[in-house]
Amino acid sequence: MTDASFETRPETQDAQFGDYFALLKPRVMTLVVFTAFVGLLAAPVGVHPFLGFCAVLFIALGGGASGALNMWYDSDIDAVMKRTAKRPIPAGKVTRDEALALGLTLSAFAVVFLGLATNWLAGGLLAFTIFFYVVIYTMWLKRLTPQNIVIGGAAGAFPPMIGWAAATGEISTASVLMFCLTFLWTPPHFWALALFVRMDYDNATVPMLTVTHGRRATRTHILVYTILLAAFAIGLGFTQVGGPLYLAVALLLNALFLKGAFDIWRRDEAASEADNFRAEKKFFKLSLLYLFAHFGAILVEAGLSRFGGL
């Protein structure tokens, strides 16, 4: 091969390492890392620090791999939406085949190495998470149902459960409730954003609840999911990962979250537009704190119980 073939390619199209890294959706990975880390540390069985580090790394890589596969499959709709048009594939920096190869290789690597580092239940759960996000959500239901956010949220909710399984080798009530915490948190978090940010999912023919069922129905959905979320979040406080600190945090934040959801539900579009969606924006900001504080409290409880505190 001569180097002429390289030179014909415009300089801007040469993919840099960061472009491949961007395929892994690093911002989503931070949530995966944090919740997996909490699941691992909250487990009643101690893990060797290096194997624990490896477990979180492989869970994050598995999450990143599913992000790359999502970008491979969704490159057509990413190209028509302003928010996603600068992603590596629609920007022309990385080809679809490269994204597919990276996603498949990293998926296999992450699953096998998590299984080897910890146990095969954790590896199996990671494999199922990747399958669920890529096949069930991305390929099948995302473009079919306005409940796509709920389904996508399930995939993002697995990491604490995988972290727990990596430490204990089993699934327990506490790990299922940690899954429910993120799973039920995702819809109100995202739908609140959808109420005040005009998204161009219509151009991409992705059904969004705000469009298919209207904004009134979206407000009702936010309230219903927030009520369900509160029940599960407080219930988690009575499992082995809970404690007085977690319960205090959960009671306070769920009271505030329920009030926020109720405020969103009772107002109409005219009221929202009059104050530039103040309640919706406030609820969205609170949702970020909500998840971080719940998992943070579980982490502190784990630290306190491990070092002979509460």
Binding site: D3, F6, E7, E11, D14, A15, Q16, F17, Y20, F21
Partner: peptide, 19 residues
């Protein structure tokens, strides 16, 4: 192409290769 000479390709792909 000389091996010793730094080709433009090497510069363009430096971050990728280092990464």
């Amino acid at each position: 192409m000389s091996i010793a000479r730094e080709h433009d390709l090497h510069k363009r792909r430096k971050s990728r290769n280092v990464g």
